[in-house]
Amino acid sequence: MGRLTGGDPSLLRRINSAVVLHALRAADFATLTEITRVTGLSRPTVEGVVEGLSEAGLVVETDADEGGARRQGRPARKFRFRAEAGHLLGLEIGAHRVAAVLSDLDGKILGTAAKDVSETAPADERLERLRGAVADLLRRAGVSRGSLRAVGVGSPGIVEADGSVRLSTALPGWTGLPLGERLRRSFKCPVLVENDANAAAVAEHWKGAATESDDVVFVLAGLSPGAGSLIGGRLHRGYGGAAGEIGALHLLGREVTPETLLSTTDEPLHPLDEQAVAKVFAHAREGDERARAAVDRFIRRLVHDVGALVLALDPELVVVGGWAAGLDDVLEPLHRELTRYCLRPPRVTLSLLGEAAVATGALRLALDHVDEELFAVEGTVTQRHQ
């Protein structure tokens, strides 16, 4: 990259635009005098920048009441960030459902949609259900597809930088699927694909149980648990995007697969699906001893997997999500075992976002991407998964 100097007028304009846009976005509205005071820029510079942002459709003059007593004379002009200048989508692709959430450029939720899908559905059918959910959502919200500025996607599996799924055992036909490429055919904006547990971790940090913690492990607890981790507030993906794949830890032991853990007979549980597992948990709640023993084994497995990740990362907080978050007494044994093995055990809590976590996190990833574009001060923006 060429050497940038203070005499580069285009660079100075980009910096000043980013500074003013930040100030306007942080307030409901502001006058030119207020923007000048907050940013430290000169009045003529602020006027020029606001005019340019208005021409770009990102800022608009507003007649909002400042909340104070009316002053005599001509009222000061007020401006606000046009959050409605574009829209964002967060998408979840799961075993039993697909979901979408729509927001403006401030991340304000404008609507949601979800459709059930069979866990045995092939990839084409699952993607078609997702497109249907998106179409329904945009139609109800009155938002055109051309208004979308970025789309985030949360998917099971190990996700490559280009949005391809390198490995996924959760969905039929998902391993090797060029998911990002397939979805980009439906949108004229950047599409960012992320592992579902990673997306959920981002969501809990944004709007859920981890808003006050920057070192977090989120456990997406299902038949094969996965985890997403934030270190210093930043998502940790690992060298190949496989960080947090704790579901593979059973390979280090013998006969500790979900089929054997959740069996209430002397044979592995078959078929191993969430409907069959739900029956085991229901029988356990009714007092069936063999079912209760199966649930206890499953929880111990979960504790073992989470404990390994906690020992490696030393997080402040562990958030438990996924359908296993609804199990009775899942937090107490997890906290007890972490206290037993960790020098400084983390706090343990349940997800506040529930089944909305993955789509919400995908939306946040889309918002982060757009923020990088809006507030970039260099000529190009490094884009991931595009």
Rank of each mutant, 00 (worst) to 15 (best):
V191Q: 05
G354V: 05
K207D: 12
A248G: 14
S213T: 15
V49G: 06
E355I: 03
L127W: 02
Q275S: 08
K188A: 14
P122F: 08
L249V: 08
D196W: 04
G232C: 02
V191P: 08
T5A: 06
T112A: 14
N198A: 09
P122S: 01
D116A: 13
L249I: 13
L365I: 15
L148Y: 00
E286P: 02
A325W: 04
I15T: 06
E66Q: 02
D8P: 04
V381C: 08
E119H: 15
D136N: 06
T349R: 10
V165F: 04
P258R: 02
R300N: 10
R14S: 12
A312K: 07
G322W: 03
T39M: 05
D296N: 08
F281R: 06
R13D: 15
R3H: 15
N195T: 01
D296H: 11
D266S: 09
A366P: 04
N198D: 14
A141S: 13
P122G: 05
G67E: 08
V193P: 05
K279H: 07
L365D: 07
T5Q: 06
R80W: 00
G107M: 03
F298Y: 15
A200Q: 10
E55Y: 01
T39C: 09
S118L: 13
A56D: 15
N195M: 05
G241N: 05
R300E: 15
D65T: 02
R290F: 10
G163P: 09
T31R: 05
T360L: 08
A161G: 01
G173M: 12
A83R: 12
R139P: 03
L249F: 13
P346W: 11
D328R: 04
E373P: 00
H283A: 15
R234F: 03
R340G: 01
S164Q: 14
E194G: 00
S164I: 04
R290W: 01
L179N: 14
A357T: 00
G132L: 04
V256A: 12
A133I: 08
T211G: 05
H236C: 09
G146N: 10
A362N: 05
G247S: 12
L363G: 02
H87K: 03
L272S: 07
G86E: 07
W174Y: 08
R37F: 09
P333E: 04
R70I: 12
L269G: 11
V59D: 04
A278E: 14
F187E: 14
E84L: 03
Y239V: 14
R129M: 14
L251S: 12
H385M: 02
L302H: 06
A227Y: 02
S17N: 13
V60D: 11
A18E: 09
I299N: 11
L12C: 12
R3M: 15
R184W: 12
R80N: 04
E51W: 02
L138V: 06
R43M: 15
F218H: 07
L363S: 00
V101T: 12
S229R: 07
G57I: 02
A203E: 09
Q275F: 13
G228N: 12
A243L: 13
R344I: 10
V280Q: 10
D273H: 04
I231H: 05
R139N: 12
P190W: 01
R237C: 13
R74L: 13
A248N: 09
